[in-house]
Each structure stands twice: as structure tokens, then as C-alpha cells.
């Protein structure tokens, strides 16, 4: 009885310690995030010894990035959140939870000092790829096609009444510098009855946009370029081949969560369950009393095939 009690106590304590394990990982996180700090003027952000400088960008650049909150810092008694760009860890966003981070421009964007020169040089350089963005979908377009449109724009643009474009679907044209580095909203393609119109955002004032960032078609005129039939057909083809846009700012990156669920699923249904059946089959085989050992050989082989196939499926998804 005493021995049993000791075993139960040991089991209980082991379980308790096992349950404590996750808190250890959180403790480590807290230690790491505690290193973020900001100087009194708000011009310098530190992560350990690394310095981050303000990165001056217009609102156009910001909209489609994903940031993950990392820590909070105090600036003149105001609590600010520090979020790191998912695609580019050198890019950091500082914002107040109670306010929209984009409110009043992007003065709260910081870039790692050691990589800032390279980023600025890239921003002054040429775009490496272009994409069209609907509210929910994003499509890649050929560089030559867009570069042709952009080069003709200044010379061949015409003045169009925006009311004519009232019912046209809008697709924002985004220019990308490099994977993980900022993108820029260049303009918008409008799918009208006459064909696609391209309107550049350059020079357009804030009152030309609706509250959700679309080109306002209520009143006035804009400079627009009517695309040729070939260009319109190529744009339609590009729009047909789309992917879904990701959510914009997330506290927890969904990808990581998906992977966690995926690995739990693989471990539980792909390894643990068939392993239990395999152990059972082996026990039945070893027992002398078992009436039909061939059945358990088949069951054991099936459970091995189960594990192999589950690992194969996991591998095919991951590669």
C-alpha cells in the first residue's frame, strides 16, 4: 500500500512538472523581449546592443505587411508596442495599442541601423516584381507588361471623369523591391466597360481616396491610361491566377499555429495510434494462448504501413 502511494505521488509530481514545462518557455520569452528599450526622444530604439533608427516611409508602403507583437516599451509614461515585420526582421513597428499605428503617417517605423543603408538604396532602385491586389486576392503580373504601362503613362494619359469609373472593379498595383523588403502602392487598375484604365497614385491627394483606401469615384477627374486589348487580356489572365491575401497585423502568426496543429495531428493519429495497435498485436503474438496468430501478424503489418504512410504524407506536405 505504501509503495502504491509512493508510485501515485511520483506520477502526480511527474505530471505536475510536465505541465510546468510550457511556463519555462514563456519565461525565456519574457527575458528576451525585456531587452527592447527606447530613448527619451523616441528617435532611437534598442534591442540589446543593436540600434534601430526611424525609417521614413509613406503610408503606401505599410498596408500589406504582417507584424507580430514582440514586446512593450515605455516612452514618457506612454506604453508602446514593438512589432517585428514577419517577412523582414530588420523592420520594426512602434505603435500605441489605443491608436491606429498608421495615424499621422509612419513616424513609428524603425529599421536596423546596420541594414538601413542597404534598404534605402533598394528603395531608390527599381522594382523587382509587381502584383495586383484585390481586397481578398493577390496576383502576380509580368514585369515587362507593367513596365510597358508605366513607361507609356506620362505621355499617353488622358483626363477621365471618375464617375465613368464608378462601377469599375479596382485592382491596386504593388511594386516589390525584394522579398522581405518594402513594397509600394503604385496605382490602380480599373476594369471599366472600355477596358482597363491605369491611374497612378503619384500626385493624388488624400481627398481622392475613400476611407478604405480605394480611389474615390464620387466626383472630379483623374489622369488615366487606357490599356490596349493585348495588355487588358494579359491583365485578365494574371488576375485569374490569384492567391488569397493574408491578414494584415496578427498577434500570433497563423502559420506557426498551423504547423503546431499539423505536427500534433501527425504525432497523435499518424504515430501514437498505430503504435498502440502495433504493441497490442505484438503482445497478442507473444502470448501463447492466442488462437489465430496470423491475424495479429497482419494487424501488426497494417499498423506499420499506417505509420509509414502517415510519415510519407507529412513529408509530401512539408517538402
Amino acid at each position: 500500500m505504501k509503495k502504491n502511494l509512493r508510485s501515485y505521488l511520483a506520477l502526480f509530481l511527474s505530471l505536475f512538472l510536465l505541465l510546468c514545462l510550457p511556463t519555462l518557455s514563456f519565461a525565456e520569452d519574457e527575458e528576451a523581449t525585456a531587452e527592447w528599450r527606447i530613448d527619451e526622444s523616441g528617435d532611437l530604439l534598442y534591442y540589446g546592443q543593436e540600434r534601430y533608427l526611424p525609417f521614413d516611409l509613406s503610408y503606401d508602403y505599410l498596408n500589406l505587411w504582417d507584424f507580430s507583437k514582440e514586446a512593450t516599451v515605455l516612452l514618457n509614461d506612454r506604453e508602446l508596442s514593438v512589432a517585428i515585420c514577419d517577412d523582414n526582421p530588420d523592420l520594426v513597428l512602434l505603435y500605441e495599442d489605443s491608436k491606429d499605428y498608421a495615424d499621422g503617417g509612419c513616424k513609428h517605423l524603425y529599421y536596423k541601423e546596420s541594414a538601413l543603408a542597404e534598404a534605402k538604396a533598394l528603395l531608390e532602385g527599381e522594382f523587382t516584381s509587381y502584383k495586383l491586389n484585390d481586397e481578398f486576392y493577390i496576383s502576380k503580373v509580368e514585369n515587362a507588361l507593367i513596365e510597358g504601362i508605366l513607361s507609356r503613362y506620362e505621355e499617353q494619359k488622358q483626363t477621365v471623369e471618375v464617375l465613368e469609373l464608378e462601377n469599375a472593379d479596382q485592382y491596386e498595383l504593388l511594386g516589390y523591391f525584394k522579398k522581405g523588403l518594402p513594397l509600394k502602392k503604385l496605382g490602380v487598375l480599373l476594369d471599366s466597360d472600355k477596358g482597363y484604365y491605369y491611374v497612378s497614385y503619384q500626385g493624388l491627394t488624400n481627398d481622392r481616396f475613400t476611407s478604405d483606401g480605394k480611389l474615390s469615384t464620387r466626383e472630379g477627374q483623374v489622369s488615366a491610361l487606357l490599356l490596349t486589348e493585348e495588355e487588358s487580356a494579359a491583365i485578365s489572365d494574371a488576375l485569374y491566377d490569384y492567391t488569397f491575401t493574408k491578414p494584415q497585423v496578427s498577434a500570433d502568426p497563423p502559420t506557426a499555429l498551423l504547423y503546431v496543429f499539423f505536427f500534433i495531428g501527425v504525432a497523435l493519429f499518424g504515430i501514437f495510434s498505430p503504435l498502440l495497435i502495433l504493441v497490442f498485436a505484438v503482445i497478442m503474438l507473444v502470448r501463447k494462448k492466442t488462437l489465430h496468430p496470423a491475424r495479429y501478424v497482419a494487424l501488426g503489418l497494417l499498423s506499420i504501413a499506417w505509420i509509414v504512410l502517415a510519415l510519407l504524407v507529412a513529408l509530401l506536405i512539408l517538402i
Binding site: I277, L302, W306, L312, L316, I317
Partner: peptide, 28 residues
């Protein structure tokens, strides 16, 4: 296609194993 094939085979193998397990246990 390889993934769909392997996935279908996995479901078939897994459910067959479960069916066999229950049938053998009941018979035993």
C-alpha cells in the same frame, strides 16, 4: 497527386487496421 494517393491509402490502411482490431478483439 502523390499526396492525394498517399492520403487515400493512409485512410484505407488506418480504417482497415481499426476494423480488424475491433473484429479480432470481439472474436477473441
Amino acid at each position: 497527386f502523390a499526396l492525394i494517393g498517399a492520403g487515400l491509402l493512409l485512410v484505407i490502411v488506418a480504417v482497415t487496421a481499426l476494423n480488424m482490431l475491433l473484429a479480432f478483439l470481439s472474436k477473441e
